[in-house]
Amino acid sequence: MITLSLRGVRGGVGTSSTLAALGHALHELGQKVLLVDMCPENSLGLHFNMDLAPREGWARATLDQQPWHEQAWVVEPGLCVLPYGQLKPSEVFALDALLIEQPKLWTQRQIALAKGFDWILFDLPQRLPGHVSSPHCRISMMVINPDAACHVLLQPQLAQTPLFLVNRFDAASQLQRDLLLIWQQRYAHALVPVNLHADEAMGEALARSEPAGRYAPASLIALDIISLASWCLLRGRRPA
């Protein structure tokens, strides 16, 4: 079993969409995949035509001392989504404190899940240090957009995240090309060698409540995601 997490360098870089699409692509490549929503917004399921913000989820269950693993939804055989559940803002902080207190919580859960899944993908939130640090992942990627703001944010981030994933790259933009060149130069080993291109199909996919690979399988973004999934498979196979 291989664990992978995605986290945006800031909000709105397309983390959840990418995670949903990546989960779908890995599943297409014959893998059993579990997607875990670690964000209090609780909206990952929307990509798989599930209800908006379901009440039940792993966070809800953890706080209520319920069995957390019963909350997962089966989208297709071998592709499951574990929602966050509805929490009040105060409860979110309480849970975060709990996660900091018990840093092994998700590690134990991952071991428990190892038999059922080949891949567990975590959609990490922006802040909430407990949520962010709790799952220990083999592959952790930070999603960035090629713009100057992300470039500024990247400066102090280097030490924490081993991998950067560029999303919404538009090769027609001079600035984006330049930024990518700088990153390729500067973070040669940290940059995932697959860039996700800006493609209208990615936005439309969510509006259709589908992951991009299912909504527009012939699109460039679908190919990019498949490339990313293949790259992850190769990397996951490598001894850590």
Partner: peptide, 23 residues
């Protein structure tokens, strides 16, 4: 050619050049 383009990028965008110097 990539190296040349990189140099031109810093000429084009002062913020990037500034950040590069910081880095």
């Amino acid at each position: 050619s990539a190296h040349m383009e990189l140099l031109q990028a810093f000429e084009r965008w002062p913020l990037l050049a500034y950040l590069e110097a910081q880095y």
